[in-house]
């Protein structure tokens, strides 16, 4: 097994990086693809809470990097899904405890243990972000349908291109179909117009996400959740499956627009 390293980042905070990392990890593992989630947000760790594994932490990312434990010891096995692991961030340290080289080394060591390595990037464009994207084979940029989030995503895409990590792929999170229909919210077309990269996920706003996060029970485990469905679709697309985008609007011509989206993604 040689794992693919996927970093999930956004620039802006609070758009759903951690939620997406947890859910894509859960979805990949439940599809039978072993995955390891790494929380690179050292000092502000959250991924363990959302995955519901907070009380199992013994060693963390900084312990591995500084050689206080073996890599295997820091990998926390998920309690629901087999073949899903979490390497938590240290809470009492900061981003400078880890270097981009450390991250590359760590991921190289992990590659033989799983199929997917998902890295949850901290917000911002500083050291923590550099650490998170250094080992990435693929970068997923997550944004909300808000002008400020799209602006930050655009900046991030520019930085990723400058690092030679390709343009990445886009997840639009917390889309409210009703508002888009009324013209009160940016639609996916507006966002793709600006960012011009390939779309990999369209996640609708779903109250179940908040409940799930608070309970440490990722929404991707919930078969009846629309957001959970969207995250499972992302996992399938990562595995190379052609999954059509779920129609979010009940309006005519939607399929036509979606097929246009699929074609226009990442052509520039």
């Amino acid at each position: 097994m040689t794992a693919k390293v996927v970093t999930i980042t956004s620039g802006k905070g609070g758009v759903g990086k951690t939620t997406a990392t947890a859910n894509i990890g859960v979805a990949l593992a439940s599809l039978g693809h072993p995955a390891v989630c790494i929380d690179a947000d050292i000092g502000l760790r959250n991924l363990d809470v959302i995955m519901g594994l907070e009380n199992r932490i013994v060693y963390d990312l900084v312990d591995v990097v500084e050689g206080r434990c073996k890599l295997r010891q820091s990998m926390i096995k998920d309690k629901r899904v087999p073949d899903l692991y979490l390497i938590p961030a240290a809470q009492a340290r900061d981003k400078t405890s880890v270097s981009p080289q450390d991250m590359i080394r760590l991921c190289d060591e992990l590659r033989s243990h799983c199929e997917w390595i998902l890295i949850d990037s901290p917000a911002g464009i500083e050291r923590g972000f550099r650490n998170a994207i250094a080992p990435a084979d693929l970068v997923l940029i997550i944004t909300n349908p808000e002008v400020s989030a799209v602006r930050d995503a655009d900046r991030i895409i520019g930085l990723i291109e400058a690092e030679g990590k390709g343009p990445g792929q886009l997840i639009i999170n917390r889309l409210k179909p009703e508002m888009v229909k009324k013209g009160d919210m940016l639609g996916e077309e507006d966002i793709l117009d600006v960012l011009a990269i390939e779309l990999i996920g369209l996640v609708p706003e779903d109250d179940a996400v908040i409940t799930a996060s608070n309970q440490g029970n990722p929404v991707a485990l919930n078969a009846s959740s629309s957001a959970g469905n969207a995250f499972r679709d992302i996992a399938r697309r990562l595995n190379g499956e052609e999954v059509p985008f779920e129609p979010l609007y009940d309006q005519q011509g939607f399929l036509k627009r979606i097929s246009r989206l699929v074609r226009s993604g990442g052509d520039r």
Binding site: D154, R155, I157, G158, E161
Partner: peptide, 8 residues
Amino acid sequence: ERTLRSGQ
């Protein structure tokens, strides 16, 4: 020959 993105 490319898109100029935010911050560039």
